[in-house]
Design a binder for these strands. Sequence first.
DNA 1: GTGCGGATGAACT
DNA 2: GTTCATCCGCACT
Length: 203
Amino acid sequence: MAKLSYSYYQNIDVNAVAVDLLGKYLFTSIDGTVTGGIIVETEAYKGAEDKASHAYAGRFTSRTQTMYEDGGLAYVYLCYGIHHLFNVVTGPKGIPHAVLIRGLEPVEGLEHMLSRRGMSILKSNITAGPGALAKAMGIDKNLNSADLQGDLIWVEDRGLGFKNEQIVACPRVGVAYAEDHALLPWRYFVKGNRFVSKPNKYI
DNA sequence: GTGCGGATGAACT
DNA sequence: GTTCATCCGCACT
């Protein structure tokens, strides 16, 4: 039941955090409705030096300013005009590192997730993919810059972890524009888990 | 002020 | 495999 500490998020090694977040529990409490699940897929975005990052080359705008804050905040933004994507801000203040949460295994509040997704029975795509899981968890721009030690959205360590051989590293999804950084193996997921998002050809 | 295109998902053929 | 929904961030005039 331990929320991840302030110092956990301050880690300068965003890839290490992305790997370590696998097996942690993400929760939201929206208008008193609690939903949560196990993180099974992440991607690391390495701030100013990463061409796939919104903060590449130190770009600082009203959208990206959240990423420059202290690690331990939520970075939520709208993608393709339709989908909210949820990231964990990591690293010390001024370093815009972030970890995109791409896959979640539902654990708590399943009926609320189904309702938010307009589904009647559980299918793996309920939380497979960043846009899908944000919708299932009720995450939208209201949670941008939210403190992950607060009571709206948080991450817990419940002692679950995965061995190295259960974790796959492969290129990130949807970042073809990032040129030579597009093939960096900074996407991590739990091998064989059904709540990992689709492009799985690297298993 | 305008124009382009995206860290996607779902519904098609 | 292809299409398209749908809107704002961002670069440039």
